Simulated scan of single mutants.
Amino acid sequence: MGSLLGKVDWIGRSGLLEKLLEEQDGLVIQTLDQGFEAEVMKIVSGRESFVLKLWNKSSRPDIRTQFLLLKELFERGIAVSEPLGWGIDTNGDQVLLTTFDGTPVKKVNARKLAVLADMLAKLHQIKVEDLQGTHLPANDFMKYFFPGVEEYADISRLLIPLVQKAQMKQESIIHGDFHMNNIVEKNGRYTVIDWTNGQTGDPGYDFAWSVVLLSVYISEPYAAAFRSAYLQRYNIGPEKLKIYEALAVLRWRLLQRSGGVPVKQDTFQRITSIAEHNPFLQG
Rank of each mutant, 00 (worst) to 15 (best):
L5F: 05
V95Y: 03
V80R: 01
N182Y: 01
Y217T: 10
G102V: 05
R270M: 13
E171C: 07
A79Y: 01
V212F: 04
L17A: 13
P262E: 02
M180H: 10
V8C: 03
I126V: 14
D101K: 15
S156Q: 11
L17N: 07
R257V: 06
L20M: 03
N91T: 14
L16W: 15
R189Q: 14
Q30I: 07
T196E: 13
R251M: 11
K107P: 04
S45V: 04
A166T: 05
V95E: 01
K53A: 13
S14K: 03
D118F: 05
F226K: 02
P104V: 08
W252L: 10
H175P: 00
S58V: 15
S45T: 09
N139P: 06
K42T: 09
P238H: 01
D140S: 12
V95S: 09
F178R: 04
V80S: 00
I174H: 02
T134R: 09
G85T: 05
E75W: 03
T103M: 07
G2D: 08
Q232D: 11
P221T: 13
P262M: 05
M168T: 12
Q167R: 07
I78K: 08
W195A: 12
N197H: 14
E185W: 02
G260F: 04
R227D: 09
S172W: 00
D62R: 06
K143Q: 15
D177Y: 03
K264S: 11
D33A: 12
G26C: 06
G283V: 08
P262T: 14
Q125C: 08
G92A: 12
G176K: 05
I43L: 15
Q34N: 13
T191L: 04
G283D: 11
L54P: 06
A38M: 06
I174K: 01
A246P: 03
S273H: 13
T272I: 14
K71T: 15
P203F: 01
A275H: 05
V261W: 01
P104K: 00
H124A: 12
A166K: 00
F36H: 11
Q232S: 09
G176W: 00
F100D: 11
G204L: 05
N109K: 10
T134D: 14
K106Q: 10
N139D: 10
T272Y: 06
H135L: 13
N181M: 08
K240P: 01
F67P: 04
G87T: 10
H124P: 04
L136K: 00
P104I: 06
L136R: 01
L281P: 03
S273N: 13
G176R: 05
H179K: 14
P147V: 12
V51G: 10
E239W: 01
Q199R: 12
Q34S: 12
M168Y: 04
N197P: 10
Q125P: 03
A223T: 07
L214I: 04
F207A: 14
V108I: 13
A225C: 12
V108N: 09
L254M: 10
R76S: 07
